[in-house]
């Protein structure tokens, strides 16, 4: 487990350092994802330990958003004052973005090999 976790943490750490040294507006973990992907392509496979740690983290991904979501409690006053624009904007723009992305991509994928291949 430690080896698998180290793969992930080292990529994240290098990503954080690169983002700062190169002054990129991209967060360290996203660069870390790119670095891990490159490492896996060079290595030509996912080590079993890395897979078990990584998939364990991803299985409970939605739990990881709870602390930030509870942060709503700090913005009670603003939410009461601007609940209508905030809720309409969040709701509709999410539906619009989902629909546009899915429709554009499925227009191109129609006719190409299905996900089952």
């Amino acid at each position: 487990m430690l080896v698998g976790l180290s793969w992930i943490l080292v990529c994240q750490l290098v990503g954080e350092i690169l983002a700062r040294v190169l002054r990129l507006p991209v967060p360290g973990p996203v660069l870390g994802m790119v670095l891990l992907l490159l490492a896996l392509m060079v290595r030509g496979g996912v080590p079993a330990e890395l897979r078990s740690v990584g998939e364990g983290l991803l299985r409970h991904l939605s739990l990881l958003f709870v602390p930030a979501g509870v942060g709503l409690v700090v913005h009670g006053a603003r939410l009461r004052a601007e609940w209508l624009p905030i809720s309409v904007a969040v709701l509709l723009s999410t539906v619009i973005a989902l629909a546009i992305t899915a429709l554009v991509l499925s227009r191109f994928t129609a006719g190409r090999a299905d996900s089952a291949e």
Partner: peptide
């Protein structure tokens, strides 16, 4: 718990790697 969002983001490289051939074939539409 919040901290683990970072490592979880890095771990997304695993499903990306598993699906690399499909992604490469569709890069422009994506």
């Amino acid at each position: 718990i919040h901290f683990l969002l970072g490592p979880a983001t890095v771990a997304l490289a695993i499903p990306l790697y598993d699906n690399r051939s499909q992604i490469r074939a569709l890069w422009l539409p994506l």
